[in-house]
Amino acid sequence: MGKRVDSAARREMILRAAVRVFARQGFAATRVDDIAGEAGVAKGSVYLYFDSRDALLAAAFETYAAQSQAVVQQARTGAGDGLERLASLVRSVVDMVAAEPELARILIDLWAAGRQGDASGMDIPAVYREYRAVVAELLADAEAEGILRAGVGEGHAAVVVGAIEGCVLQWIVDPALPVAELAAPIVELCVEGLRRREEG
């Protein structure tokens, strides 16, 4: 039993090393030797857990997707009205990427791999569809609760996701941007801006 725990820990250590190297050098410039060196293991040890560099990138994506799924589930089942849960979703996504900067930085490589058809097992469009779907659900809840301004539809869900992702992308290319501080302005513009104003 102890061996299995050690094996899982070793796999996680190699994956974390790969994420650090991908974030630092970019996926295209990274060799398995680089990852082994970062992890402090022999190159053969990497191949015991991952078939290839692509498999490491796919595993990193799975980590990101699992975190995203947890955030989405919390937004669906959490407390508060639709707009409160949407504000919580925005804050959680920004907190997630700010807490895992290296994982966030390899998103560029994930997007590129997906565009080139090299992202075996990585359904990046599905992650975005899920985000848009949950935002649309929360907006529909807010409409049913009578707190959403008129004329808000599914297009607004894509804009909310775009605002979050646009800020994340700016931070990835310019790490001086204080991404953790951007949740509040996103909420102000993209959540509170959709709230129905009381007449008079």
Rank of each mutant, 00 (worst) to 15 (best):
R85A: 01
L194T: 02
Q170H: 09
A112D: 15
A157M: 10
A18M: 08
A65S: 08
I172E: 06
I35P: 06
L139R: 13
R4F: 00
Q74W: 03
I14L: 09
A39T: 08
A142H: 12
M96P: 01
L103S: 06
G153M: 11
I106L: 15
R149A: 12
V127L: 15
G82D: 06
A163T: 04
E145K: 08
A176C: 07
R53G: 01
L56G: 06
A70C: 00
V191C: 04
V94E: 08
R76T: 01
R105G: 10
A184L: 09
A157W: 12
T63P: 05
V168S: 03
A142M: 04
A136K: 11
V94L: 12
V161K: 01
F50M: 06
E188M: 02
Y49G: 02
G82F: 03
D34G: 10
W171C: 09
P125Y: 03
L56P: 02
G121S: 03
V187E: 15
A17E: 01
G37C: 06
A113L: 13
I124V: 15
L194A: 11
G114M: 04
L110S: 10
E84F: 00
S7R: 15
Q25S: 15
A133V: 02
D174W: 00
I164C: 10
I108V: 14
A158N: 08
M13W: 04
G114V: 08
A55P: 05
M122H: 04
K43A: 13
F27D: 11
Y128M: 05
A150L: 04
P185Q: 01
P101Y: 00
A104S: 12
A126T: 04
F61L: 00
